[in-house]
Design a protein around this nucleic acid. Structure first.
Lengths: 189, 189
DNA sequence: GTCTATAGACGGATAGAC
DNA sequence: GTCTATCCGTCTATAGAC
């Protein structure tokens, strides 16, 4: 291990992220106070404000990565020719993204309402919903009938929603991932 | 229309329910204050406390009905012989329940985290999650493999989750209901 | 049934010492 | 980087007049 610039004295920042993500997903974003997060870590509220500008900033620190991944997938899909193979490849990558960040997706699913008001404040407008719509368009084409569009949306949603529900009772994530992909593929056909 | 006991002077109680359900679903349960609800109705906070014991009580006033419906479905399913026909009938009734109370289900989906902490407080333990598990058991039988169980859960979840997403852009609810039922049936087969 | 007024608690955020 | 102390806002809920 080499020095990469100045090493942080402690890893408080990442510990905050971990605890916050846990508590936000468990109890909800609004209900979890900074005092509670600080107490769990054995520090004070003020210490958190050294690492993050605000409570919202903590959320962005772990959602931005995953939104970027979704954007990457969308950009890639736009360059591909429409067709069954592209659809399947999209779903494969999407499932990979979800399973690569289950904790974050769980947090989002558990705090839909809070996320909406959070996202509508920023200039960037990092809308979860608009990305979903875009992906549905890419999966179906712009003028697809309602039935096709609904099924595409269901394929995407069921990946994250379903694995949230059964996640705790599963020993082998890889098996679940395979099941989710098969399911999503079936739905869109 | 006949008299049913003492007629209320005003319909404030039901107007509170309607506005609260709207705001809770839009902005989230925690973020919506009683002051805001009261303002929209042109009354004061204190007036709300004449009709409801607490903020939580407002929620229970419109979720209890729908939990009772789910319990009814579960009780009925327990008396039926396992098989494809029972499965299909279960899904049909479930879809009916969801579409019969879309606003309530939307509220639940949007406030998963808040609902969990709300429900775990009461003695009744009106758990959304445990009902889902029970329904999955009834759909699959108790010892079904993971793949079967995941797909049953997905069938149930995709009904509510999906129609939340596309609801606003749909003119004909009946058409959507048919699509949802077809989808749920496909998934479990 | 609805009001005014207020209690009592807790939230996010900041200032400044060390 | 972390602390103590504090500001100021908002919230749920209640008491008591009308």
């Amino acid at each position: 291990m080499q020095h990469t610039g100045v090493a942080p004295r402690t890893d408080t920042r990442s510990r905050v992220q971990k605890v916050a993500l846990e508590l936000f997903a468990e109890q909800g974003y609004e209900k979890t106070s900074l005092r509670e997060i600080a107490e769990r870590l054995g520090v004070t509220k003020a210490a958190l404000y050294y690492h993050f500008r605000s409570k919202e900033d903590i959320v962005h620190s772990f959602t931005d990565d995953h939104y970027a991944r979704l954007d990457g997938l969308i950009d890639w899909a736009k360059t591909q020719p429409p067709g069954e193979q592209t659809r399947h490849e999209m779903l494969t990558r999407y499932v990979g993204i979800v399973f690569g960040g289950v904790e974050v997706f769980r947090f989002i699913e558990q705090n839909r309402a809070a996320m909406q008001t959070l996202e509508s404040k920023g200039d960037r407008m990092a809308r979860f919903r608009s990305r979903l719509d875009t992906m549905v368009d890419l999966l179906t084409g712009p003028d697809a009938p309602l039935r096709t569009r609904v099924r595409a949306a269901a394929a995407l949603i069921s990946v994250s929603a379903t694995c949230m529900v059964v996640w705790d009772s599963v020993h082998d994530p890889a098996e679940l991932q395979a099941i989710a992909l098969e399911l999503a593929t079936d739905i869109t056909d």
